[in-house]
Design a binder for these strands. Structure first.
Lengths: 187, 187
DNA sequence: GATTATGTGGAAGGCGCGTTTCACTTGTCA
DNA sequence: TGACAAGTGAAACGCGCCTTCCACATAATC
């Protein structure tokens, strides 16, 4: 078999081991992130790791989307429960912290085909755009900028901030303050 | 021989051809940017292209730093001739335009060893920090943010802006306006 | 024009990495 | 417990890529 969920208990456990190993490596800068590395970390053979997922791409897709899913859910919750202007600031801080923790290996899976991850990124972009629109209605963000443009800027700036070497909370705050100040409507 | 300037006229001409081909490919998204590709573009054999520079890394180092050098010089000129606050805005627009034109292949030479390019990037960072410090003295940038921090934010944001798919001048202006507004001192 | 140092490039080498093979092991189920 | 399907992993394979070889070409020099 290639991809479907394994039928045997040990195979299912190995699937978890492989996924956990890949996930762990995503947060470790400097590690090669090869099938061999993941397999060794999981205590499995390289063939097993790849086979249970149907390929390296699918394995990393599962690992990355597994990390991203809670972030997207958090955005959904904030959007539903909090005032948009406030939600945006809150969420951005969390998003940056998340990206700072996981951007290190992002250039290693940048060129891979990861449908689940792509879908989540789309969801996230849509949710953030809703936050921006809400913030504009609330008067927390100036309205002379297109929501899609603002969202793109925010997302990219967040990533830029996250790439700062030691992203201390103070530094993140300083960056975010500049960004949000630039977005605020003229008093 | 490996790296030193060739003694024969045809070899010197081929060196130019290889450098020009590499430089041209740096602005072409989607092209593999392999030694083979560069060689075919230059009308030379792969061995020749690599040998005259001493390796692929050295060739791309020469190409990238050749593109970057004028940008650094421009920063130096602006810093010497223009009011810092104005220089910052002017230079950022040009920097973003440059990065937008050349970022496409940057993930293909991101992991390479390129000393000349690294040195120029250091120079650029230092010059930008001087601009920020000057802008702070002029009252164009708020002083409650560390110059190094502001410079890092500006540099990374500029790169983030440049990565926008079709970086139209209007989009760049909108982005820059947000960034500079966020940096302006409170009125 | 002859001689020689210099340069060329197709082919072969070597390396890293993802994937596949296949003899072997191990859960599972009657 | 016995038999079989399911799963494993070391080794082999394939592929892309940079680099090196070496027989051949050619600019420079006398």
């Amino acid at each position: 078999m290639s991809s479907g969920t394994p039928r045997r208990a040990d195979a299912l456990r190995n699937r978890r081991l492989a996924l956990d190993a890949a996930t762990a490596l995503l947060a470790e800068p400097g590690t090669p992130l090869t099938v061999e590395t993941i397999a060794r970390r999981a205590g499995l053979g390289a063939a097993t790791v790849v086979r249970t997922f149907g390929g390296k791409d699918a394995l990393l897709d599962a690992a990355v989307s597994g990390l991203l899913a809670p972030v997207v859910q958090r955005a959904r919750d904030l959007l539903a429960e909090t005032a948009p202007g406030e939600a945006l600031g809150l969420f951005l801080r969390e998003l940056i912290a998340f990206q700072a923790a996981h951007h290190s290996a992002s250039d290693q899976w940048g060129g891979l085909d990861m449908p689940a991850t792509s879908a989540l990124r789309g969801d996230l972009a849509r949710l953030m755009e809703e936050m921006v629109e809400g913030a504009q209605r609330d008067g927390a963000v100036r309205t002379d900028i297109d929501p899609a443009v603002a969202t793109s800027l925010i997302g990219r700036t967040a990533l830029a901030i996250a790439r700062t070497q030691p992203p201390s909370p103070q530094l993140i705050d300083a960056y975010l303050a500049v960004l949000l100040r630039g977005l605020r409507p003229p008093t």
